[in-house]
Design a binder for these strands. Structure first.
Lengths: 259, 259
DNA sequence: ACGCATTTGTTCGTATGTATT
DNA sequence: TAATACATACGAACAAATGCG
């Protein structure tokens, strides 16, 4: 712990540098956290896999175990990592039972766990419409993939999703690929396209069913629907999915916890 | 630090006791946390006030500062306490700018901060209806207070709230009291009735405006509305407020963050 | 304006407990 | 049983923010 050669920047180096523009000092554990996020972003550790132990990471970055621990604590709180006592710390995945449909807040009123069947309606590639391009931070004219699907409870359609993805990141996403996939779509994204959703923002409204929507959801024209616009982010706060959802809330509700 | 006389239970005592029913061992910092929550619940420290410093609490409970710190960390994460470097740790309150309207997720579409005027419609005392009694865990026939109000953006009504409170806890809540109050309702509750909301669960649906609602919100019959059922909890997971809200989402939306 | 005391924030080191393999 | 990994707990030191004299 004497020299610091070849090591990542320490807090001191940033703090002692008398830069005129105030280089935004950050505590050591935040720097370690940033390095860990970089490793995840770079694909050094895959979803579901163990990351090195706290002791090893401490040695690697030449900091104390407590500092690594604090960095990992924050990442675990943000659902990027999962700690398991006695086993190790794992990269979060949308594959596990507990985190499956982590982002779907629609729940049956009777409390039973949500069990919805998928019905793929469409999957096509096109130039991103202006609004989609704006939200996904694409250049004008860049390609996007549109996926439309229904979620059904038995024979009752409950959700109509209109999903938009950046074309370049999702090269090779086809109807067949989607059709063949069993399991959550976000799991497909992380397994086949190395895109891991870690956070999302939603804007929710009540709207009246338009003709096409009403037809697909087997509802009368003008029936009230929950409109959910979701923008999902991956590491580094990069938006990578835009999803317009229409939820039928006669026998379901959107649950939320305020803290 | 030698003897432990008159002190709260330590982790060891619980762990070593060979109770047959497995008395649910909890780590020391969790026990400290429970004691701190009790102090809040008992009103030992008022909202907005400083609690004793970490060093003093550590001495009082005969544990290390780090253990107190971890207990406070969790409570800060749950918004029960607020830490301020150099000043101390404060009991959270609904009075501050940052936490005002902490539970109101409705935001104008144009991004401006929500600025809504209140218009009180009703405040009366009655026997709690069955559903209200069930959710607020009241005995059949117990009294409840019903408050109905509008929130307006200029002259446009945006929110219609139907609020239910336990009658005993809110003895003395009258139209005049509500009418006179400036500031968030939750601030009134904690200041005048010692009821502090720390958590809430919401169930959200899209519904069609019924005649009375449509009239109050200046909307056509059947217009889509966001229906928000909120159950608010105070210390010890006791539900103390039930609120049925109807939100007009033409120029506003309910924002949510998924993590 | 300056320094000092107080309080939380960060970092380190060490030891021990608990869960898993 | 032993080794490994995370979880808890303690103690110490210094940094940063705040408020007061």
């Amino acid at each position: 712990m004497e020299d610091n050669a070849g090591m990542p920047p320490r807090a001191e180096s940033a703090a002692t540098a008398e830069a005129p523009a105030a280089p935004a000092f950050s505590p050591l554990y935040q720097q370690i956290k940033a390095l860990l996020v970089q490793s995840l972003q770079g694909g050094a550790w895959q979803p579901g896999q163990v990351i090195p132990s706290e002791v090893e990471l401490a040695a690697r970055y030449r900091v104390s175990q407590g500092t690594v621990r604090k960095a990992i604590d924050e990442m675990a709180a943000e659902n990027m990592l999962v700690r398991r006592q006695g086993k190790g710390t794992f990269v979060a995945t949308h594959a596990e039972q507990s985190t499956q449909y982590r982002f779907l807040r629609l729940t049956p009123d009777d409390g039973t766990p949500p069990a919805l069947q998928r019905k793929l309606l469409e999957c096509r590639r096109m130039r991103a419409p202006a609004e989609v391009a704006r939200l996904l931070v694409l250049k004008v004219g860049e390609s996007a993939v549109q996926v439309r699907r229904l979620l059904l409870n038995g024979s009752t359609p409950v959700v109509l999703d209109d999903i938009w993805l950046p074309g370049t990141a999702f090269k090779g996403l086809t109807v067949e690929r989607l059709q063949a996939w069993r399991g959550p779509m976000y799991r497909l994204f992380e397994a086949e396209f190395a895109v891991h959703m870690i956070r999302a923002e939603e804007k929710i409204r009540a709207v009246a069913a338009a003709p096409e929507e009403a037809g697909l959801l087997h509802l009368p024209l003008g029936a009230p629907l929950l409109s959910v616009e979701r923008l999902s982010y991956t590491y580094g706060d990069r938006p990578v999915e835009l999803r317009y959802g229409l939820y039928q809330t006669a026998a379901h509700h959107y649950r939320n916890e305020l803290i």
